[in-house]
């Protein structure tokens, strides 16, 4: 599994200092969530879109990431218009009332959610996790927390690799899933073995880390240097966000 599909690239957002991106992202999220009216959230949505464009990411891949979240949002569109009891109604019959306020709320949630997702992909997704963990250390996030975050992330991939290996092993010996006891037994074995193997693997990796002098935190090799471009981007981006929010 390739989790860092967006981290490879040479766009402006890829070369920015991760610290600037984290600050920009955090402020963006806070203001986007708090934005009122229709226009500000819509402009934030456009900014999210613009960031994806600026990061020169493949739209197909970005859309593939946005899709699951939007499937979830469909429920808001189905439920909210019927839940609000406020006037005015878009459609009003004795049996069916669709509230304009409900539609508006669903729209707002959709806009904000997609804006934040796109900003996450474009700002955080364009750094690899090691850089983000490193940047978190600079923000005085406790080293233990950062290590947990990093190792956790690192092992999602390992778990997935283990899963693929076991699946291949089963397929290689002619396993075809059917509705049979044999199939369910096999799946049971797969899951059980996945647990055992990931546990063993983690122990082994831990031993390998200890063998190389691991003391509970990751030492940092390359340090960040703020470039004028970083400062300019951060300043410009934050100003735009403030301006949109207050006008």
């Amino acid at each position: 599994m390739h989790l860092e599909v967006f981290a490879e690239g040479r766009s402006l957002l890829h070369i920015l200092d991760p610290r600037v991106k984290i600050v920009s992202f955090t402020v963006f999220v806070i203001f986007c969530v708090g934005a009122k009216g229709f226009l500000p959230p819509f402009v934030y949505f456009l900014i999210g879109f613009g960031l994806v464009f600026l990061a020169k990411l493949e739209f197909k891949k970005v859309l593939a990431r946005l899709l699951p979240a939007n499937v979830f949002l469909v429920f808001f569109w189905v439920l909210l218009p019927f839940m609000y009891k406020s006037n005015p109604y878009l459609i009003e019959t004795p049996y069916l009332k669709i509230s304009a306020e409900g539609v508006y709320q669903a729209l707002l949630i959709t806009l904000k959610c997609n804006a934040i997702l796109m900003a996450t992909i474009a700002l955080l997704g364009t750094s690899n996790v090691f850089m983000l963990a490193h940047a978190m250390l600079h923000f005085k996030v406790p080293a233990k927390l950062v290590t947990v975050f990093f190792v956790f992330y690192r092992y999602i991939t390992v778990l997935h690799e283990e899963y693929l290996k076991i699946k291949r092993a089963a397929l290689a010996r002619g396993f075809v899933p059917k509705n049979s006891l044999q199939t369910y037994k096999t799946y049971g074995y797969l899951v059980a073995f996945l647990l055992i193997k990931s546990f063993e693997r983690s122990e082994e990796v831990y031993r390998a880390m200890l063998a190389r002098g691991f003391k509970g935190f990751f030492p940092v090799l390359n340090h960040f240097y703020l470039k004028p471009l970083d400062l300019f981007f951060g300043f410009f981006f934050l100003t735009v966000i403030f301006l949109i929010f207050f006008f």
Partner: peptide, 25 residues
């Protein structure tokens, strides 16, 4: 196919069941 890493090939609880896996399939 014999995998390079035998660990990626064996996943049944016992040796017996692992050998039985292919023929059962």
């Amino acid at each position: 196919l014999l995998f390079q890493d035998s660990d990626s090939q064996l996943f049944c609880p016992t040796v017996k069941e692992d050998i039985a896996f292919g023929p059962l399939n």
